[in-house]
Nucleic acid binder design. Structure first.
Lengths: 211, 211
DNA sequence: CCGTTTGATGACCCGCGGGTCATCAAGCGT
DNA sequence: ACGCTTGATGACCCGCGGGTCATCAAACGG
């Protein structure tokens, strides 16, 4: 009784749709298993294709990952840049909205796996690290620098060591992402609680008081 | 010309010293390559033993890692607990000293690899996550809770969402550890700068002002 | 309709590395 | 000195998974 032979759909050429399907399947597997732990056999199954087909579109596993990461990261920063560009309110409100967006688009989504993967596998695959640095870190830091400079110019941000290294401002969100990935199953902490603590710390710690 | 055959030291039994030597070698390999990337062949070479010898002392790779992690983590928390217990000064000073210690004993040492490894491999090896949670996270959080409660009782810490979730207080150090591991080569940020920004943010963000 | 192109398949290759175990020999006890 | 115990060795096993490629067949163009 071979069910596989009966129920298997006939092969179909779907050249235009395939890359995105493979990327999506890849990102899911990378999210669950990490880069090394994700098997291309599983990616292929998820995408409904044969493993060899992956190589028609991506040179190798790393190329698939890079494509998947890029597809996810670029829109996020494009949106954030546009948002900050257009924003006209107080720095407190801007921080609140940006930090909230970080939670909505990083902490609570599978984009957070990039943190895991780069940290975990970056030493073995330096190109992952370089790529992520270029696509996400440089852009993220530039955005934070911009928010801080704007705040200082408006007299709303207190100059000091924290304003000079704004990456510390988003550190709680990074830790929340790590928590969600590694410990939430054992020891749940609601995202809202991280967000509230984060905003509390950063608004009190960075802003000029009373502003 | 086989140099190996001439220069190889005779086998010697060193049962009592071996476990620590293997642990030390293991931790170094795990630090460089991550858990999955570290090869027991390399651990053995580093320890000056044959690979099979590792299995005389540790059931498998995971057992080696757990032993290595434990050997490193437990003393750090023992010291920190004792320090906080004995400390009689202001919360500002206590935070300064504890955060500085975190940088000295985590960010700047190979202990930071535990973050990487748990994050990377925890999904595949749940026992790693559980172990680390029990040994490090629970203790760490308890210590932070204690510092905050002490500070609130002395009127030095501002109650609020950040005080309710003190893990955000050490988030910059976690991010600094990640930075050191993943990005420092591409984009160096001096530890002192992280430390200054961290203390600036946390002292301003958490402490009652003027205290 | 038919020949050609090319997207899709899955059996297979092969290097990698965790783990095994027969053999060796250090060291102890008598 | 010798037999026994047990720590150490390294050749080997074998499963895993990334990548290959001969074969198939969908789809296009004449």
């Amino acid at each position: 009784m071979d069910d596989t032979a009966i129920s298997r759909p006939p092969r179909r050429r779907r050249k235009d749709a395939r890359p995105a399907e493979i990327i999506d399947a890849g990102l899911r597997e990378f999210a669950e298993k990490g880069f090394a732990g994700a098997r291309l056999e599983d990616v292929a199954r998820r995408a409904g294709i044969a493993k060899g087909t992956i190589y028609r579109y991506f040179a190798d596993k790393e190329a698939l990952f890079l494509a998947a990461a890029r597809a996810r990261v670029v829109p996020v920063f494009d949106d954030a840049d546009a948002f900050v560009e257009a924003f006209a309110g107080s720095t407190r409100e801007l921080l609140r909205l940006i930090v909230t967006q970080i939670y909505g688009r990083l902490v609570e989504t599978d984009l957070r796996v990039l943190i895991r993967i780069v940290l975990a596998e970056g030493a073995i695959f330096p190109s992952l690290t370089e790529h992520y640095h270029r696509e996400a870190i440089v852009r993220g830091r530039r955005l934070l620098d911009r928010i801080v400079a704007r705040g200082i110019a408006r007299g709303e941000v207190r100059p000091g060591p924290a304003a000079d290294l704004p990456i510390v401002i988003v550190a709680p969100a990074i830790v929340a992402s790590i928590w969600k990935m590694a410990f939430d199953r054992l020891d749940p902490i609601a995202t809202e609680r991280f967000l509230a603590a984060h905003l509390d710390l950063v608004c009190e710690g960075l802003l000029v008081h009373g502003r």
